[in-house]
Each structure stands twice: as C-alpha cells, then as structure tokens.
Computed example of a mutant assay.
Amino acid sequence: MAKQERSERTLERLVVAAAEEFALHGFVRATLGGVSRTAGVTKGALFFHFPTKDDLADAVQKRGQDILETMLTDVTRAEKSCLQVLVDATHTLSGMLRSDPFIKAGVRIARERTAGSPVPADFYPLWLGRLGQLLETARKDGELAADVPDLSARTLVTAVVCGVETLAWMGVPEDESHQWLGCLWELVLPVVASADALPRLRTAAPVAASSGRGRAVRH
C-alpha cells in the first residue's frame, strides 16, 4: 500500500509539473527533463508513468477537461437560464485562462500539437461542444430568438470564446477582460436572446452579482 501511495504521489507531482511547464513554455518547447526537475523526480520515474511527451499532454488535457466540466456543473447549479450559464461560464473561463495552469496548458497544447497527433481531450472541441449543448437547451427552453439560426448563434459564441482567449494570451488584466466581455455580451445577447429571456440576463461577471444581479442587458 505504501508503494502504491508513493507511486500515486509521484504521478500527481508529474502531472502538476507538466501543466506548469506546458503553460509556461508551450507543448513544443517544454521538455521531459524540465518536467522531471520541476516535479523533483527522476527521469526514470517520469518514463515509468509517461513514456512520451504526448502521454503527459494527454494527462494534462484530461485534467483540464475535468476542471472545466466541474466549473460548468457549478455554474449550471447556480443559474437556471442556459444563456446566463453561458455568459457566466465565459467570464469564469477568462479568469481560469490566467490562473489555472491546467487550462492554460490545455490551450497551448491544443494550439501547438502537430496535425495528426492524438488529441483525446482537445480543449477547443470539448469546450465549444459543451457551449453548443447549452445553446441547444436554450433553444428548447425558448431562450433563443426564433429568427436566429443555430449556426449563427454558435458562430457568435465561438467568437466570444476566441476573444476571451486572445485577451488572456495578450496579457490583458483580468478586470479589463471582464469589462470587455460584459460589453461584448451586451451587444451579442440582444441579437440571440428571445424577448422573454433578454430582460433577465446579466452581462457582468458572476462575482458582480454578490451584491445584486449586476448589470442587466441594455436594450
């Protein structure tokens, strides 16, 4: 049992170290030697658990996927409106792209892996796929405007996510990014939301709702 516990601790240290290395240096420039040094374990221990850099990247992306799924679950529990969940999730993602090494690493891995590399937990299709599911539910619940095609709604949401990621990549401060995102949602929501859903939607970050509902959409 003690040997198994040591192995599990070593595995965890390696995955955390890999996330830090990938987030800092990217998939291409990060090295297995750098991961082993950051984790404080031997290369032999690293190769025992992860024979290749792709194996390490898979583990980091899988952890990032779990973190994002947990975040979406928490946001969904806090809000009944799927469109509000979508807004809040993008605000939360904006912060995680700056603070969570697994999310930052997952994006860099997804960007830098060569074509044809195995991507069992690629950030982009997973994240955009989940947001697409929220839009599908919003459609069923009558939250989307009837004259807005599904593809148009997905296109707008994809553009929002890409903008959030770009601001994080540029090093724009988180508070400024939240302001930008709130203003963008003020433009997007009146286009995609139904007349009944729109007045209930908030565009500000979830933390802004701690003393109230934050800004409602202006229309």
Rank of each mutant, 00 (worst) to 15 (best):
A115V: 14
A110H: 05
R113G: 08
R108T: 08
V75A: 00
A153M: 10
V75I: 14
Y124D: 14
P173V: 00
A168P: 05
E112Q: 12
A204E: 14
D196N: 09
C162F: 13
L189W: 02
G182Q: 03
E186K: 02
T203N: 06
T92E: 09
G95N: 09
D175E: 12
K140I: 15
T137Q: 15
R202G: 15
T114Q: 14
A204D: 15
P125E: 12
L128M: 14
R77K: 13
A195I: 07
T114Y: 11
C82H: 09
V188L: 03
S177F: 00
S152N: 08
A121V: 07
S99A: 08
E165H: 11
A110P: 04
E176T: 11
R98N: 02
P118G: 13
C183H: 15
R111E: 14
G95R: 07
L201C: 07
G106Q: 08
I67C: 08
P118A: 14
L86W: 01
Q133S: 06
D122E: 15
Q133F: 09
E174M: 08
T114S: 13
L181F: 04
L86R: 02
S81W: 05
P190G: 06
P101S: 04
V172W: 00
V161A: 10
V148Q: 02
V172K: 01
D88E: 06
V191A: 10
S99Q: 12
E136C: 05
P173R: 04
D150N: 13
A78K: 02
V164D: 03
W169C: 09
L151Y: 07
A110L: 11
P118I: 08
L86P: 04
C183Q: 15
V107Q: 04
V192I: 15
R202W: 10
R113I: 07
E112Y: 00
G142T: 02
A153P: 05
T155I: 09
S117H: 12
S81G: 04
M96C: 07
T155C: 08
F123A: 10
A153T: 09
T155M: 02
G171E: 07
L134R: 11
E174I: 07
T92W: 00
L201K: 00
E143R: 06
P149F: 01
S99E: 03
A204S: 15
T92S: 10
C82D: 14
A168Y: 02
L198P: 04
D150I: 13
L156E: 12
S94I: 01
F102V: 09
A105G: 10
S177H: 02
T203P: 00
C183Y: 15
L184P: 06
A78F: 06
T92H: 01
L97F: 01
G171K: 01
V164G: 05
T73G: 13
W169H: 14
E174F: 05
D150Y: 12
L72Y: 03
S194M: 05
G129E: 12
F123K: 04
G106E: 06
G132S: 13
Q133L: 15
L151M: 11
R130H: 12
V161W: 00
L184T: 15
L93K: 07
T166P: 01
V148C: 04
E143A: 09
R77Q: 13
L144G: 03
G182N: 05
C183E: 15
